[in-house]
Write a protein that binds this DNA or RNA. Structure first.
Lengths: 246, 246
DNA sequence: TGGCGGAGATAACATAGGTTGTGTTATTAC
DNA sequence: GTAATAACACAACCTATGTTATCTCCGCCA
């Protein structure tokens, strides 16, 4: 207890009482290992639980009739998976693991219990939902109004920034366990074009492709390429907290 | 009281006690008229209140450095605007009215109070947030992996389906106060291409362009063009309710 | 030890959709 | 009643990105 990933994540927003920490810890009672590439669920499966990510990476996606795939979001340690499905009987997107991972499942009704027990946690959960929305909004802007070059750079910088939340501090070099295919599916591009674009970025010494995954060499530089504005990742609970008592 | 738009919307999900109805009504204390094209806020403005839409249409958008614009969502009567900004001090997107409208503002902290007073309403709000996410997800899929033709059709059908929620029932003909420019900005296309696409759909008798706005002639037909799957609009609170008491 | 599948690289070619530019109406503003 | 503006239409041309097709490299496992 105490080093729980979810607790760490939530404390990023506000100091938690012991009772609240215990409540949160109870959501992480059942950590379980899953191996790379396992698919936790498909679109349309009954949606019965949320998961918190203790270790590893995952992504949510939608398969299209024509065989293509749209990736919607990528999850890293500290993230909560499945909030999107809160209001639905069935999952609106599929979920697959990108690496070997450790996840903790907690059943849907448990969330409502938490709402009842702690107004503060309730507010934090609501805030996370709003942050998830902000991320989707940003991805939409990315897809709708940016060039391939900007899309790739923007996506990579976002992942880097999101990792700073749990890693104490990310060096200017950073390794992401992503494939070019995943990038393509996330950004609405073809793999071939992602490859072309990637080639460009490599020549500019912004990224590199080691044996596996993607290595960011110059996050600042990528940020410039993407016109990245990080404000959509900078939540603030104070405005809410003043009124939330504990 | 009783005919409040927000109450009607919420009752779509679950029966409300009198106390809860009054609580909701209190959010609609201050209806105010706004005229077409007024901009309620810009990206970056302090985010202090939510609005419920009593009458009229609105849309949220993001202006890009290069002068283009990405529209993120369109709001119709019964919708709640601004939940996206819950966790942020500043608005993550701008907001503008599409028609003359009547909106009701309620300050952000009021939402937290509602959470505290009614667990049921708290759950419904959470559910609406998850629905908003599902809509964004669908828009993302639209932008990433569909042709212009499908994009336009899909977007139009979505609006039609969303209107069924408040209008008792929508005839097969339906008039939307949207411009082609708005469609373009929502779908990540150029106006010219939307126009081309629209032309096609007109020839197939699926839509029509009266003096102003867009007239849907054959929603079923459009649905087919778009491979539209409505499940992302069909929320269900029962799974949650069982445990939410009143 | 070899064969197989996934990820990456690259080339040649094809096209959906973007851009620019010019008109036509229909509204709105004075 | 005329100017200015917003929406729509359509033509000609252009380019970013998609498609198809090889080839290589590496890790995996039978």
């Amino acid at each position: 207890m105490g080093s729980s990933c979810i607790v760490k994540h939530f404390q990023h927003y506000a100091p938690l009482s012991v009772a609240e920490q215990e409540l949160l810890d109870s959501l992480e009672k059942s950590p379980k290992e899953y191996s790379k590439s396992t698919q936790l669920w498909s679109q349309g499966d009954p949606s019965e639980a949320f998961y918190s990510v203790k270790k590893g990476w995952a992504y949510s996606f939608r398969d299209m009739e024509d065989g293509s795939r749209q990736v919607l979001d990528v999850y890293v340690p500290g993230d909560i998976i499945g909030l999107r499905d809160f209001g639905f009987q069935r999952r609106v997107t599929g979920l697959k693991l990108l690496t070997n991972s450790v996840l903790c499942a907690f059943p849907k009704p448990r969330l409502t219990e938490v709402f009842a027990e702690s107004l503060l946690l309730c507010n934090i959960f609501f805030m996370i939902a709003s942050r998830d929305q902000a991320i989707l909004v940003e991805r939409l802007v990315n897809l709708g109004r940016r060039t391939a070059r900007e899309k790739v750079a923007h996506f990579l910088v976002e992942m880097a920034r999101r990792l700073e939340r749990t890693n104490t501090r990310v060096a200017n070099h950073l390794h992401l366990p992503l494939t070019q295919t995943l990038l393509a599916d996330a950004l609405g591009l073809s793999v071939v074009h992602v490859n072309r674009t990637f080639h460009e970025l490599k020549e500019e010494k912004l990224v590199e492709a080691p044996n596996s995954g993607i290595l960011l060499l110059d996050i600042e530089g990528l940020q410039k390429v993407a016109c990245f504005d990080p404000s959509y990742l900078e939540e603030d609970l104070d405005g809410v907290l003043k009124h939330a008592g504990t």
